[in-house]
């Protein structure tokens, strides 16, 4: 059963990676990153039940990573809103100051 969960998480991670690299709307890029974080959480919880030494440590790790992901989402949206005020767009292709 462990390998089914790991495969599931791998599928989720790859879809998230594809979304983060292809999408143009910066909000959707943030959402895709959340998808990848979810895949990692699934792995941690699967190992906390089916690993060699089952323990609650994996669940604690997941709890902390959910907290950090929530903080990341809040700060990310705030930065996006500030950027939108400055540039008038959320299209990630147009945030290109660093390569001009």
């Amino acid at each position: 059963m462990l390998s089914s969960y790991l495969t599931m998480a791998a599928i989720l991670f790859c879809i998230g990676l594809y979304g983060a690299l292809v999408k143009r709307n910066a909000v959707i890029i943030l959402l895709s990153i959340e998808l990848m974080l979810n895949a990692v959480n699934l792995n941690l919880v699967a190992f906390s039940k089916y690993g060699v030494v089952p323990s609650l440590t994996g669940q604690m790790f997941t709890l902390f990573s959910i907290a950090v992901a929530a903080a990341e989402a809040a700060v990310g949206i705030a930065i996006l809103i500030a950027l939108f005020r400055a540039r008038g767009t959320v299209n990630a292709d147009e945030y290109d100051e660093m390569r001009r």
Binding site: V27, L30, L31, A73, I77, T89
Partner: peptide, 12 residues
């Protein structure tokens, strides 16, 4: 919900 607010507050 936060993401939906982010979408509503930015013109897309």
């Amino acid at each position: 919900i936060l993401m939906i607010f982010g979408i509503m507050m930015t013109k897309h």
